[in-house]
């Protein structure tokens, strides 16, 4: 057998899929920050977290990532795409790019992805659950009902989330997410 016919192979990168995920993470990260101002529930979730709370959500092992933290006033803050050099008490990584695509194309809801063991959680589970609740809410704001209903277990009833609040909230969150204030 000629060993040279069977060379070492370094698998490459899936650039387009990674860009898609990076964009989604950017929007979601900004949207969390915006929702933290607009939505009572999200604001409360962040206020309940520890003072120096920061979490990173991304893809193992080469990213992309988004980093969101809580400022001293208890507000949500998007802290960029780079987790390096930051102290991050909660790291939630999706095991690989393809699993992340399933999550960010909403083929798998957060809870189904958890049940399918797609996430590795490094940090306090109580905090991770709070983050999952926030993500679910943000998805309800960002996505049309048809898609969001797939992404969350229970789509909020109109009574719980008045149409006015939702639509105004949605527009505001979109604007803030894109303009970044």
């Amino acid at each position: 057998m000629n060993y040279d016919s069977y060379p070492e192979i370094k698998p490459g990168r899936k650039t387009i899929k990674r860009i898609y995920i990076a964009v989604m993470l950017f929007i979601v990260g900004r949207a969390i920050q915006a929702a933290g101002r607009m939505d009572k529930t999200v604001r409360k979730e962040f206020q309940n977290l520890k003072d120096d709370f920061v979490f990173a959500l991304g893809v193992h092992p080469h990213g992309p990532w988004m980093v969101v933290g809580r400022d001293t006033k208890g507000r949500a803050r998007y802290l960029g795409w780079n987790p390096e050099g930051k102290k991050i008490p909660l790291k939630m990584s999706i095991k690989n790019v393809e699993s992340a695509i399933l999550v960010f194309t909403f083929q798998e809801s957060t809870s189904v992805a958890f049940a399918r063991n797609r996430f590795v959680v490094d940090g306090d589970l109580i905090d991770a659950l709070a983050v999952v609740r926030v993500l679910d809410l943000v998805e309800v704001y960002l996505l049309p009902k048809l898609i969001a209903a797939l992404a969350v277990k229970r789509y909020p009833k109109w009574s719980e989330l008045s149409p006015v609040r939702k639509h105004i909230g949605r527009v505001a969150i979109y604007t803030r997410a894109l303009l970044g204030f």
Binding site: Y6, E8, I9, P11, R13, K14, V59, N96, V97, E98
Partner: peptide, 18 residues
Amino acid sequence: IIRALYDSNLVIGALYDG
């Protein structure tokens, strides 16, 4: 399989498909 292993830390030492 090569495509499935993209974006990982893994390196294929050798792939024999003879």
